[in-house]
Amino acid sequence: MFSCLKQGIYPYVEAVFGWDDIFQRERIMNNYDLAWFHWVYRDDDRVGMVCFKEYDNALHVHFLILEEQYQNQGLGKTLMTQLEKQARHKELEKLTLSSFICNSRAIAFYQSIGYQITESDEHFHSLTLLLK
């Protein structure tokens, strides 16, 4: 799991904070529940992972990582649509996530499927999709 996570976030963490394997492993182990992580499959092939949890009246996506060769094939949109359906079924009000500002591809993707930037700081945009 950690190698998939590292593959997806390394360039952005390295650019902003500098990457430290030990720190990142401990951060994941201490701040995330393993039950929030789910492998993403296409047929029988594991192609990525998603990490999300429900809180307050929202579903928050911590990570959506697809291996490079599976990107730009509609899998991310399909996955986010499934999460939206799950949140609507639970009658949640919104889906939330954050992205490194320097990850312009991710931000453009989320905006293309209806997410709005709701907050920003020096390194991150918070994005929200309102469901109600």
Results as ranks from 00 to 15, higher is better:
31 N>K: 15
3 S>I: 14
9 I>H: 03
74 G>I: 02
16 V>W: 08
112 S>Y: 09
10 Y>V: 09
36 W>T: 07
9 I>T: 05
51 C>N: 12
98 S>M: 06
67 E>F: 06
32 Y>R: 01
129 L>K: 14
107 I>T: 14
110 Y>V: 05
7 Q>N: 13
87 A>E: 06
107 I>E: 12
93 E>G: 13
118 T>K: 09
100 F>D: 07
55 Y>Q: 13
96 T>A: 11
72 N>Y: 00
44 D>R: 07
50 V>P: 04
102 C>W: 00
123 H>Y: 04
122 E>Y: 05
36 W>E: 02
95 L>Q: 00
53 K>M: 04
72 N>K: 09
114 G>R: 03
85 K>Y: 03
129 L>S: 09
58 A>R: 08
121 D>F: 08
123 H>N: 14
110 Y>W: 07
117 I>V: 10
11 P>D: 13
3 S>Y: 04
61 V>T: 09
129 L>D: 06
117 I>K: 10
42 R>I: 00
117 I>Y: 00
71 Q>A: 10
38 H>F: 05
34 L>V: 06
7 Q>V: 13
9 I>M: 09
114 G>K: 00
103 N>D: 14
120 S>Q: 14
125 H>M: 09
80 M>G: 10
84 E>I: 00
114 G>N: 11
15 A>L: 07
37 F>P: 00
19 W>C: 02
39 W>A: 01
23 F>C: 07
71 Q>H: 04
105 R>Y: 07
89 H>P: 00
109 F>D: 00
130 L>T: 14
126 S>D: 14
4 C>Q: 08
50 V>H: 14
16 V>R: 02
49 M>Y: 08
30 N>K: 03
48 G>D: 13
39 W>S: 06
69 Q>N: 11
76 G>I: 13
21 D>L: 01
60 H>A: 06
93 E>T: 10
3 S>D: 13
37 F>I: 03
28 I>G: 05
107 I>Y: 01
22 I>A: 15
1 M>W: 11
13 V>Y: 15
116 Q>K: 14
112 S>H: 03
81 T>G: 09
84 E>D: 02
43 D>L: 04
118 T>M: 02
56 D>N: 03
120 S>D: 05
64 L>R: 08
92 L>Q: 15
69 Q>E: 07
52 F>N: 07
65 I>V: 10
108 A>W: 07
26 E>K: 04
44 D>W: 03
85 K>C: 04
104 S>E: 15
